[in-house]
Design a protein around this nucleic acid. Structure first.
Lengths: 230, 230
DNA sequence: CCAAAAGTGTTTTACATACACCCATGG
DNA sequence: CCATGGGTGTATGTAAAACACTTTTGG
């Protein structure tokens, strides 16, 4: 057994490695995850094996380029674990990622129709295999944990959003009800958002103001100690 | 390129995988990390290649069994990344872990003397190579983040501890000063600790009461929304 | 009696929570 | 004129922060 050495022992084992991504976006229907229909008529998370000449990062980028293409996303590694399947009995490692995408990229909608790919509501994305179910569950757990400790939630909102959209995002992800007036106060006081000179159009009620995420203020918010606590 | 398939393409690349652990404990001198002196006279994190017949988990367990041996620890995976070195130019993946160990395992002290192994104060554990430096920094970042959102801090304290010990742990890891009276009130009100019928002995000042972590109360503390916010 | 740490109590301030209410707009 | 969501204001309770103070013990 080799300790802390760079030299590999003869017994070192070799693995094939796959990258599996849980890609989320948020629209009026709520939180959704991107699933791919494979040749066996099963829906699963987008997944690639790492090929010769590629790395972990380049492979995850390939997946994103293929399905999302846009540059505006948030990506975070979840966990590496041993995996096996019918075709590749055991010598595998899977690295899971979760990815957040803004919904205002129309490209997505048009592009995806051509592929065997679809956005699924979270609670309808069942019948995944065990591996993908595990990654999806872990993603959601992380999303719930991180959304209050950082500003990653804004990666799921359009560039311009209303406060109701933001509030509903937090409500759905955290599974709680939030008081409208308190939500506003908190966001304003923290300086998380700044108002734009633009309003909704063609809505059958009072038009809401659009806001954008205020990155400059967020950076000042003594990073690391940031907490929204709903 | 294979999408979401179990079948591996011919081009799938193979990797050797190493497990590197940042193992921490906390004593009167503060937070310390376990370093191993390898054959090239460099200090680094304990590390093993995954061998034939082994898995990610079994290999990390081997490392812990070798250096820590005790069962009482907390272990969490950090990240998998491509790595290379002088001896193994590129086809590697490293999976980092961080581990918290209670300091009241005397075994450690006696055992480690026989190995080329030593506890280093965090701020003195320099001259690590880039890979290990990265893992150590990431570990500390995670530790700082998680110590307020969960009770993992107690994994660094002895079974029986005084409130000053607990407070100093939080102070060192967070790099802040905490008010003694407010710290007590918070821990008591949350029911995080319960007092024992035991006191310090042989101290040259008023003996402090010993406390233990109250797991039952912690479980009731609506998990996931737990926050200490110092 | 001094030092050093244990341990208690009080006051001020901030903020989360809850709730009531008015405003604008399309149907 | 009403339903729907936008947006404002206020009262209340809880908890964080700051601090002043007493207690215990060994030297």
């Amino acid at each position: 057994m080799e300790i802390n050495g760079d030299r590999k022992p003869e017994t070192a084992r070799q693995y094939h490695v796959s990258i599996d991504c849980a890609i989320f976006h948020f629209d009026t229907d709520g939180l959704k995850v991107l699933l791919v229909n494979n040749e066996k008529e099963n829906w699963g998370l987008p997944s690639h094996w790492i090929s010769e000449g590629e790395t972990i990062e380049s492979t995850s980028n390939q997946i994103l380029k293929k399905y999302i293409r846009v540059e505006v996303f948030y990506i975070k590694q979840l966990e590496a674990f041993n995996s096996s399947s019918q075709y590749s009995p055991s010598d595998n490692i899977t690295i899971g990622y979760y990815v957040l995408v803004k919904k205002d990229n129309l490209y997505l909608e048009n592009h995806l129709q051509s592929l065997e790919v679809q956005w699924w509501k979270i609670d309808e994305a069942l019948h995944l295999n065990y591996k993908h179910r595990t990654i999806l569950d872990y993603s959601l757990k992380e999303l719930r944990r991180c959304i209050c400790q950082s500003a990653i939630g804004f990666n799921l909102l359009p560039e311009k959003f209303t406060l109701l959209q933001a509030m509903q995002l937090y409500e759905e992800i955290l599974g709680i009800e939030i008081n409208k007036s308190n939500f506003r106060r908190k966001f304003f006081k923290m300086g998380l958002v700044s108002g734009l000179d633009e309003k909704q159009e063609d809505v059958s009620h009072r038009a809401a103001k659009f806001y954008k995420f205020n990155l400059e203020n967020y950076k000042k918010l003594e990073q690391g100690r940031f907490n929204l606590r709903f």
